[in-house]
Computed example of a mutant assay.
Amino acid sequence: MSRFEELFTQHVATAFARQLALADRIGERDWQLDLTEGVVTFGEDLRYPVQLLGTESDGSGSHGSWLWAWANTGSNLPVHLLHLSEWLRGYGEQAGVAELTEASFPLERADGARLALIASGLTGRCYYRGPYDGGAVFFHLEGLPASLIEPVSPERAFLVLGQVIQAFPVDHRAMLLAFLGQQGWSIGEDGPGLVVGHHPGGSEMRVEFDEQGRIGRVSGQVQPG
């Protein structure tokens, strides 16, 4: 497993949970990004400062590519909107994560969603993917309500776990252990085949693994909040 894959596995579930919370908040509102002011507006009532991450270019066929915001010198992006992407570049240099330090690479290597989920896990922010003709811009939101980044309810934790293993090819056990730990659950392991998580509120999650180390069955009980 590469350093990038390890980092993604460690952060994907908690970051994905934040994205679900953000989706609950913004709903179906239209979005508008103002690079001069450095803010995004959702509908008529939600407005947040942003930090740019980068852009996906669709290209042709399978030739789409990612470009980090700090490397997008041709767009004259405001310097104050690049602090986060620069920080991630520095983190990548220290941690040996090439995908955070190389200016551009094919999407088949790492797409914007996976890069933004890692960034979310490292910084505690939510991100937004804004599509446009020929690609999409990814940016992180500042000043969101604390409830969007706090540990999720046990009900949401079960949902997140199921959606992550369906959406991403990750090490199931490593992802689960990282997620439960980050969310404040105590964790017990009964050999390679069973992990039991206990939520501070009394809920329990039992996760059974098959011989390939993949999640085979999830059960448990959720205590009323």
Rank of each mutant, 00 (worst) to 15 (best):
H83W: 14
F16D: 09
V218H: 08
G191C: 05
L144P: 02
V12G: 01
I26G: 05
G130C: 14
A21E: 15
D30G: 13
L20T: 03
E37H: 13
F16R: 14
E5P: 05
L46G: 06
L84I: 09
A178S: 15
A103W: 01
L46W: 11
R129I: 07
S219K: 09
Q94F: 12
E56Y: 00
I149W: 06
V12W: 05
D24T: 09
E150I: 02
R89L: 11
G112H: 04
E150F: 11
I215D: 00
G64E: 08
S65Q: 13
E189M: 00
G124W: 01
H80M: 11
D30V: 06
E99F: 03
L148G: 09
Q32P: 09
A13E: 00
F179T: 04
D190A: 14
E211V: 10
G92T: 00
L161F: 10
V195I: 03
L77R: 02
D133P: 04
E211P: 04
G188W: 11
E204W: 12
R114H: 13
L194I: 01
V40M: 05
V97G: 02
V222H: 04
D171L: 07
N76I: 00
Q183F: 00
E108S: 13
V79T: 12
G61H: 02
W66S: 02
G64C: 01
E44P: 02
V218R: 09
G92H: 05
R129V: 08
L81K: 03
Q166P: 11
S186G: 09
A146D: 15
S2L: 03
E44K: 08
A69E: 05
L46D: 11
R109S: 09
R206S: 12
T9E: 12
P151N: 03
S57C: 13
A113P: 11
I26C: 10
H11W: 15
E86S: 15
G61S: 07
R47F: 10
P224G: 02
H83S: 13
A110R: 07
M175W: 00
L67I: 09
Q94I: 08
G191P: 03
F105Q: 03
F158R: 11
D24Q: 15
R214F: 04
R109C: 04
Y91C: 14
W66R: 01
L82Q: 06
L52G: 00
H198C: 11
H63P: 08
A23Y: 11
A95C: 08
H140Y: 12
E208D: 12
E189K: 10
C126H: 06
Q19G: 00
R129S: 10
Y91R: 14
T101P: 00
L84V: 10
A95F: 06
R47E: 09
E44A: 10
Y127K: 06
R125E: 10
E28I: 00
C126Q: 08
P49I: 03
E102I: 08
D171G: 05
H83Y: 13
H140F: 15
N72H: 13
V160Y: 09
V160K: 07
G162F: 01
A23H: 14
S203Y: 06
S85W: 08
V218E: 06
E5D: 14
